[in-house]
Nucleic acid binder design. Structure first.
Lengths: 225, 225
DNA sequence: GCAAATAATAATATCCAACATTTTTACTTT
DNA sequence: AAAGTAAAAATGTTGGATATTATTATTTGC
């Protein structure tokens, strides 16, 4: 296992296994299309055959694992087409969510956005100065939190949940970009701070454009140096 | 169990249980917020404790069942707020899907839409002439198929999947409307045929408006007689 | 030699029974 | 009547066992 520390939120075995598997899928330890044999996974992650099955079914519902009848589970494949689809959905969902959040904006929400964006800026610094799996994880987590903050005030629990699932699906692609040094941090920083300003100014049109740019940046190779 | 006939698609126990539970949730046999005790369910639907747990986890991912740590499962609650959220999401998703389907429209797709709408018209007739659980089920299924047809050509597997899940969540509300005789079939018929015409004419704007009307009709009491 | 049929192997899906832990209920005591 | 405690129920988990199904290897026929 990559990081053994178990989080408090994982108070059930299945939740713990799910966390571990999510992480290893995100980091590519479990590579796309890899067969997930129950026995092998048990040896690696522990848990009983049932807990493991339940976990796989859970992840399958989250779109990280593919389940085929009578033929077990595999890590969801990760083609460019998949990435396109995921980002297309993320774009629509987050735009909609941000738009509605802006309509219903409160001071509390604004604070949370500022907080999340600040955390992201910090993590973004750190992942550059001291690269590694741990900082990468923190970086990605801070990005997730920032994205989540945008749609948090949308008032639609289903939209919020969906945003989360989609982000989780895009994780391995982002982490791959990071690992390959194909992320233009300067451009990201510019975009996110502009986005934050637009949000503070309640400039919806501008905010949506910036959000779009930020999401679409995950598709192309930014640093074409 | 309401309808014992098992469908071929249910080639695994969990899939069969899931079907049965979905149906009973849709029909309100399992009422909102009802506690779903594994043992009780096993007696009613069969299967082992595991299969049942797995099933509940599956349905939980579909938004039909609510899972709380250490406190088991319940039927997802069904407040008016829930309905609003579901329909809000359905509206956005189906509009987006229809819009993209229209962009990429092919003859095959057009045929499928016509077919699905025809099937719906037939079922709509039948549910009026001979009411009952069986015709209600067929009616709802035909409506699902019609909705699905609209987004089918969107080219986004995740959007198609999402539409499906959302429709399934809205099922019990629609069936409740039907049961209470609060559906204006004449208005529905007018809307759907107009929608079909707009689609054939590739009139996106009109089609989207009609789709919106159709979905929003599920929120209000149409027959305020 | 190669394709098709068949046997051997592995893996999946399922079940039963049991245990630990947690939640809920009932009861007692102050 | 409120609070604390004991009893009961339900959940989460595990181990092992067994059909069924898929995969691989082998044999057979051409």
């Amino acid at each position: 296992m990559l990081f053994g520390k178990r989080v408090d939120e994982d108070d059930t075995v299945v939740a713990m296994l799910a966390s571990a598997l999510r992480r290893d899928i995100a980091f590519g330890v479990l590579v796309p299309d890899q067969k997930l044999k129950i026995e092998a996974l048990r040896q690696r992650y522990g848990g009983s055959n049932h807990s493991m099955r339940e976990t796989l079914r859970l992840l399958s519902a989250e779109g990280l694992v593919e389940a085929t009848n009578q033929r077990g589970f595999r890590v969801m494949s990760a083609t460019e087409e998949d990435l396109r689809d995921i980002l297309f959905m993320r774009l629509e969902v987050e735009r909609l969510g941000l738009s509605r959040s802006l309509e219903r904006a409160t001071v509390t929400w604004e604070s949370e956005v500022v907080g999340a964006f600040h955390g992201m800026a910090r993590a973004e610094m750190r992942v550059q100065t001291e690269p590694g799996d741990l900082t990468a994880l923190e970086w990605d987590e801070s990005c997730r939190a920032a994205s989540a903050a945008l749609v948090m005030a949308s008032g639609s629990p289903r939209l919020i949940d969906l945003q989360q699932k989609l982000y989780n699906q895009s994780r391995r692609f982002r982490l791959a970009l990071l690992r390959e040094g194909r992320i233009d941090f300067a451009a990201r920083e510019a975009r996110t701070s502009a986005l934050q300003n637009a949000i503070m100014a309640r400039d919806e049109a501008k905010a949506l454009v910036l959000l779009e740019q930020d999401i679409k940046a995950e598709l192309t190779t930014e640093k074409t140096a």
